[in-house]
């Protein structure tokens, strides 16, 4: 009987050590992975971006602004940091991490959304943070949200990958350079979608026939101002861009005017350019959108071309 206990303890210790080793390999592997969850984060951490222009924002930055077109027309090096589903505080965190590992950009195109100043409650798409949990900045920012990483997830071996075996596999494959690893269709962080029109807007209209009011949260506003102060003090020019939105959607957002006026105010106060495409002609035609807030690939290409030519007089090409 005592022998069984001894065996169990020996085997147990061995398994635990092995799991720590595997976790190390998985973390390292995922930090090299091209999986869409990690591709942009990995570019940031590897410090190879060093762009002249950074596009910052949520999915409406990620899906709307093509660095390829910006680069061609403006003759400089741009990169899209757009972060799907997140409000400004997380966008700001990603930018801070960017600065830790890359040269500061000359320009920032800050995409403006109606939910820019709304910080979400839950830790949306938490998987993208998993390989970087030993980064202080990631720990601090994720700990603000419901479903934040727990003690066991941060310190027990492999526990953070509980129920995400595909990530373990991907991590190991990347680490040991074996097997078929993931790829992505991102170009410098930009991921346009060629989806057909989905019916989410119809559901939204049915649920809120009188439209909605987007919350403006104090902490998000405060962080937005911190960001603007930082850019002003470090000689980074911010360009606010309100990318196209479906007109019917805009009409349903009761405080859209107020939010746009806020940005206008910042534009004047900091002397930063504000390009507002909220009422752009693209917004009148559903064929450029796949839902009320998101352009499809065709719409994004048209829009970025327009944006780049509008920016040309204000932006200096790379030296």
């Amino acid at each position: 009987m005592r022998t069984s206990v001894k065996y169990a303890l020996w085997c147990g210790s061995f398994v635990v050590l092995l799991m720590y080793a595997v976790q190390y390999a998985v973390d390292r592997g995922l930090r090299k992975s091209k999986m869409q969850y990690f591709a942009t984060w990995n570019d940031i951490y590897s410090g190879k971006i060093n762009a002249d222009v950074i596009v910052n924002g949520s999915s409406r930055a990620f899906l709307h602004i093509s660095p390829q077109i910006l680069d061609t027309i403006l003759h400089l090096n741009s990169y899209n940091l757009g972060l799907d589903g997140w409000g400004f505080p997380m966008q700001f965190a990603r930018f801070r991490i960017y600065l830790q590992h890359n040269k500061k950009p000359r320009y920032i195109i800050q995409s403006i959304d109606l939910d820019n100043f709304e910080d979400r409650k839950d830790l949306y798409s938490y998987r993208q943070f998993l390989p970087y949990l030993n980064d202080r900045e990631i720990r601090d920012i994720t700990s603000r949200y419901e479903g934040k990483f727990t003690f066991p997830e941060m310190y027990f071996p492999l526990f953070k990958y509980n129920n995400n075996l595909n990530l373990v596999k991907e991590g190991l494959f990347c680490y040991f350079n074996i097997g078929k690893v993931a790829t992505n269709k991102l170009y410098k962080g930009f991921g346009p979608r060629s989806f057909a029109w989905d019916s989410s807007f119809e559901r939204f209209k049915a649920a809120y026939p009188n439209g909605t009011v987007k919350p403006v949260q104090e902490n998000a506003v405060r962080e937005f101002e911190q960001f603007l102060n930082y850019c002003r003090d470090n000689d980074i020019k911010v360009i606010f861009v309100f990318t196209p939105i479906l007109r019917e959607e805009l009409a349903m957002e009761k405080n859209a005017g107020e939010i746009i006026a806020m940005i206008d105010g910042y534009s004047k106060k900091y002397n930063f350019l504000f390009l507002n495409y909220a009422n752009d002609t693209l917004g009148a035609d559903r064929k450029y959108f796949y839902n009320s807030q998101h352009l499809n690939a065709q719409g994004a290409a048209l829009f970025t071309t327009k944006l780049a030519s509008d920016l040309k007089p204000f932006v200096q090409a790379a030296p």
Partner: peptide
């Protein structure tokens, strides 16, 4: 065999058990 079964079960609870609701919020990408 006994130890193998215990370890397999403990291991599957550890890696496949559901401990937080977040684990199953579907990634919408």
């Amino acid at each position: 065999v006994r130890l193998g079964v215990y370890f397999a079960m403990a291991f599957s609870i550890y890696l496949f058990g559901v401990f937080t609701q977040r684990q199953f919020i579907y990634f919408q990408f």
